[in-house]
Amino acid sequence: MSSQATSPKPDVRFASTGSSPYAVLVALFCVIIVLSNIVAAKPIEIGSGDVISIGAIRLWPLIVDGGLVLFPLAYVIGDVLSEVYGFRAARRAVITGFACAVLAVATFTLVGAIPGAAFYENQAAYEAVLGPVGQIVAASVVGYVAGQLTNAWVLTRLKARTAERGLVGRLLASTGAGEVVDTFLFCAIAATAIGISTGGDFLNYFVVGVVLKVAFEVAVLPVTVTVIAALKRTDPTY
């Protein structure tokens, strides 16, 4: 009786989190999360002229928040962490970033509650700029934890099937899934904190946010692939 041949299991490898590049990437990841939460308090309108809409979605001018400047890099680093170090390592970075964001909000709140010096005249400005950060961080934490874990889970599940093949495909798939989850949850919670009050503006904020973030990550995809390749080549634990 002949036995049916089975295909060999893909050789799925990950590097050790004890390596120094992992610590540097996590530190950079956390800085990006904290800074993005602060600058997200400022809404940005890109473009001028007549409003262009399709149904309820306003296509022009674009409405984004300041977090768009830096936050997409968090997904680039998340892709690198997931691909090189695995889901558990990426999850550890997400939790660390969450803790840093909470610490930042607690610090802003405490400092805001402490009476300023007699000559300090910017208390109202301080509260106006950093006051919404608590709501924005709540939105960011919910969105970014769900989005980053979705991103890491999709990427590592795809890697379990293809091993070292199909890197670009899994980077794009995981980024798209993570950004949709992240941006929708963030927009739903933080919209009122930055002045988004209508359904059309919300759809604009969400759709444009996803498109621009994914477009950014597609643009820097060659850099992401190069960094991943360099870490795999140079880290002796991979």
Rank of each mutant, 00 (worst) to 15 (best):
I77G: 01
D182F: 10
Y205H: 08
A125E: 09
Y120S: 11
A152N: 03
G47W: 04
A219F: 11
F186K: 01
S140E: 04
I228L: 07
Y75I: 07
V31Q: 02
M1E: 12
V133G: 03
S7H: 12
L81R: 00
Q135F: 02
G78Q: 00
E121I: 05
V137F: 08
G199L: 06
P10H: 07
L59D: 10
A56M: 12
V218D: 01
V227E: 03
G169M: 10
L172C: 13
A56Y: 11
I95K: 09
A191Y: 02
P10D: 06
S19W: 01
I196N: 01
S20I: 10
E179D: 11
Q148C: 08
Y126W: 06
L158F: 06
L171V: 12
P10V: 07
G209E: 03
T17M: 13
L73F: 12
T198W: 07
I136S: 01
A146R: 00
P236T: 13
V94W: 07
T183I: 08
R13Y: 05
L212K: 00
I228W: 04
T96F: 12
I54M: 15
A163N: 10
Q4K: 13
L70P: 03
T109R: 01
N204V: 06
M1V: 14
Y75K: 04
T150L: 07
G112I: 05
V168Y: 07
V111L: 10
Y126A: 05
V181S: 06
A74C: 12
I189H: 01
L35Q: 08
Q135K: 08
L155N: 05
V223A: 15
L155K: 04
F184I: 13
V225F: 03
F14C: 09
M1F: 13
G112Y: 03
L35G: 14
Q148A: 14
F186W: 11
I95W: 14
T226H: 12
R233V: 07
V225K: 10
V181P: 09
P132E: 08
L68H: 13
I196K: 04
V133R: 01
R157N: 11
V64G: 05
I32W: 00
G97C: 08
P115C: 03
I95L: 15
V69M: 14
V142Y: 02
A190W: 00
L172R: 05
A163Y: 09
S174E: 06
I46A: 13
C187R: 02
A125R: 11
R13D: 03
P222C: 12
V223T: 15
A113W: 07
S82G: 09
I57D: 02
Y126R: 02
A23T: 14
I228M: 09
